[in-house]
Structure formats: C-alpha cells, structure tokens
Nucleic acid binder design. Structure first.
Lengths: 236, 236
DNA sequence: CGGGGGGTTGAGATGTCTCAAGGGGTGTGG
DNA sequence: CCACACCCCTTGAGACATCTCAACCCCCCG
C-alpha cells in the first residue's frame, strides 16, 4: 500500500505496475471481464486459485482470517489491503494454489480475469510479461512489508494520515490522466474497514479523522474527504 | 513468517519452498556461494539488485527503513524478517531492481547466489522453475501479510509466543531430518531485534518471555530457549 | 415509523511504552 | 590477570495511547 513516500510520480509505478498495460507483446490477449456487485466476493479464502484479477473499475478489500495460534482460539481477522483500478488481486494464492484471503467489492466493480493456466505459459514465452509479473509480485511484497512497518511503528494519527495520503495517491495513479491530483473524494470503505487495515479500532479512526480536520489538514463529511493541507497531514 | 498455524508438516512447505531443491530440471546449476560474517550485510537498501540468495547455513535479519511520511520526519525502521536455511532473500527488490531493505547476518552464514539475469531466462525455459519462483514470491507475500496481521491484532504475549512457535517450526523445517521437533535452541537475535520485528519494545519482549517462563510454557536462559509446553504457548 | 448500519464523542480501564536502575557476560588494554 | 567498558538483558514504577463500553446522532430502507 505504499505508505510514507512522497507523491513523486516515478515511485508510483513501483507499487502498482499493472499486468496488461505494459505487456507489450501480449497486450492484445482478450482476457474476459466480470462484474462484481457491492458486498459480493470475487473469491474467498480456501477456494482453488484459478485466475489473477486486475481491477478495471471499482474497489475491493482483501480480508485475511487466521486461526488463533492454536485450536479453539479467537481467530484473527484483518483487512490486508484495498485495491483500486489497475491493481492486481489474487497474488497471495499462487504459493498454495488456493486463495489465502477473501476479496470483497466495496462498490460495483469490474475485473479482468487472467487464468493462471494461461498466464504461466505466456510468461515463459514473453520475457517482458514474465518480468512484469515478477515485478508485480515483488511490489506486493513491498506493500505488505510497509503495512507491517506501519503497524509496528506508527501511532494512530500517523497511520490514518498515511492511509489517506496513500489512498489519494493511488487514486491519482489509477486515473490515467497524467499528473492530476485529486483533493476531494469519497472513501468506499467504512471506518471499521480502515481500522482493521490500520490495526486500530473504528472509534480511534474516527477520532483521528476528526483531529486531522480540527488541525486543518483535511475536510470531512462522512466518507467524503478533502485534502486541505498535505504538509500538515504528512508532517509528523 | 507464517505465524499462528499448527505445526502440521504439510503446511510448512507453503512458507519456504526453496528455489533449487525442487528445481528438478535445473538442479545441477552450479550457483556460487558466499560466506558472510556475523554482523555484516549481504546487501543494503538502495543497492542494485544483482541476485537472489538462498540461505545455506546461518541466519539473517532483513531491516527496512522508511522515511517519515514526509521530509524531515523520524524515519521508521523495523526488522521485517528473519531468514533461516533454505529460505530466499532479496525478493522485495525485484520490482524496483534495487534492494528495499538491508540483509544482515546474525551469525556466520553461507548463501547461494542466484543472479537474476540468469534466473529469468531459466524460468522461461523450465516451467517447474518458473512455478517455483512464483510460489516463493507468493509465499513471501503471505508471510508479510501474516506479520501485518499479527502486528495489527495480537497482544504482546501472543506475538512473542507466535514468534517462538514459528521460529522453532522453521528451524525444524530447515533441518532436512524429516519430522524432527527441536525443543531447545539458541536464538541468534537480540531482544531488540525481536521487539522490532514484533512491533514491541525490547523490555516488553523480555517481560513476555519471563512471563511465558513463569507460566511453564518455556525454559529460558538468555538466548537459550526450550519449549516446555506447546499447548500453553499456543493457547491464547 | 421503526430498525439497522454507520459515525461521532466521552470517560474510565488497560496494555504497552518510557525512564531508570542494576546484573551478568565478554573483549580489550593496562 | 585484573579492570573497565560496553552490550545485552531484566525488572520496576509511572506516563500515556489506545481500547472498551456506552450514549447518541444521522441516514436510509423497509
């Protein structure tokens, strides 16, 4: 999710290289698409991995569930990511051939379906595509590591601020329109989703958003958020 | 790093498929090795990515540093992983062609060097190798996500317990000797390393270890740790 | 009109951090 | 061979951030 980095456009590409856009050799492949309604799951944990998905429009959250350390323990659950257009879903399932998390649409969304059975041979044929796929997976590792870093080191206010900066930056990146910077947009997820993602309670998220508003960093109206002062947001 | 799962051997493979062992087609490739002294870095963040490394013996920690959300902020630093024999290092650098973290040897160690310039063509030739590489990268994504999950949802005691279980399990896995279960071993890292990894202060790690000892879950003598009662450790 | 989901805010409980002191080890230089 | 310094670890006590519990609001939908 690529928090805590400046919005330089160049670095953007690191986090969300998309699988088909730069597949110069194989771009014409007619991968099918699928529409997912808000609240529905694109896939669920445990299902066999059939395809990877690139978000075309809309937004998803991925939710991981792990059993407690042992048997009858409280299972832990957490939102592990939000996924905007041009980002790829399903990468965590490659190792076990089963999905490791649920992917749930936060709004009506469209994905491009890339069956793994087709993808691997393709990557063997086209070096650019192979490199692209490896880069995407590597970026996902970095993304997850940064999430861990944030959860391990940042206080609540910083987490929320970093989340907002990251989300806006990624939204900008998902709009092909070069270099635009959105200042005002509607978050597709609840406070509880944000909290789960950031390792905070929803009340804490709400408080921190209110605080950021009081500080003049953002404008707030329910899920409508406007970035007023990036410096204040980023600073500290 | 694959915390919070039972020690079933089958699931083990998910986390540390090794790059060469199962490369049935290309196993004979004479990748060179390199020895790293304790405290020395195998690579540092920002260096161009030349190779991936498989740990042959010893142990490494990877340390990520990120600038604060903004300019002159406190940079955040965290241990993002510990790496035992048969595990692969450097995967996070594939996306940028630069290493994203430092890899530091916790004891004198030997790695197998796999240059990326050789690896990619090889993977295009051998489907098994390609699949293997993808699986390793995917497993790394899962590993990082689980770390994030742990940091986001578990209290200190559980984190430390999960860390110990995971470390012992991985140690067992790194010993080819089938199905052995180590009960007593020497941690190669400091309390501060563990704390950084778990998102805790070193004092908290120390306290939780003492507490686990009082509870009869482990035996403790400095870095020497013995698992006395896995049930207590795992149980909440 | 009633119910439910989402959001905000307050006040007390609590887990972890911070600060501080002290106890081994180990390596080095006198 | 001793003395000292340094690193690592342990433990305590108070500070503080976040969680927990609770009340209330708004809005949408049936």
């Amino acid at each position: 999710m690529e928090l805590s980095r400046d919005p330089a456009a160049a670095s953007r590409r690191v986090v969300a290289p998309t699988l088909h856009v730069r597949l110069t050799d194989a771009d014409a492949i007619p991968f099918p698409t699928r529409t997912i309604e808000r609240g529905d799951a694109l896939y669920c944990a445990g299902e066999p991995l059939r395809s990877l998905y690139t978000v075309q429009s809309g937004c998803f959250k991925t939710v991981a569930t792990f059993p407690g350390t042992d048997d009858a323990n409280t299972p832990h659950t957490q939102v592990t990511g939000f996924h905007l257009p041009n980002e790829t879903l399903g990468l965590d399932g490659v190792c076990t051939a089963r999905h490791e998390s649920d992917a749930v649409a936060l709004e009506a969304s469209v994905v491009r379906i890339m069956p793994v059975g087709i993808l691997e041979p393709l990557c063997r044929e086209y070096a650019a595509m192979q490199h692209e796929l490896l880069a995407i997976m590597s970026a996902e590792i970095v993304r997850a590591s940064r999430l861990a870093l944030m959860l391990g080191t940042m206080p609540a206010r910083e987490r929320v601020a970093a989340f907002l900066l990251d989300f806006f930056e990624r939204f900008d990146a998902s709009m092909a329109s070069s270099g635009e910077q959105a200042t005002d947009l509607l978050l597709p997820m609840t406070r509880a989703d944000i909290g789960s993602y950031l390792g905070l309670e929803l009340e804490t998220v709400s408080r921190m958003l209110s605080k950021l508003q009081r500080e003049g960093a953002i404008g707030l109206n329910g899920r409508q958020v406007r970035i007023v002062d990036r410096a204040i947001l980023a600073h500290n």
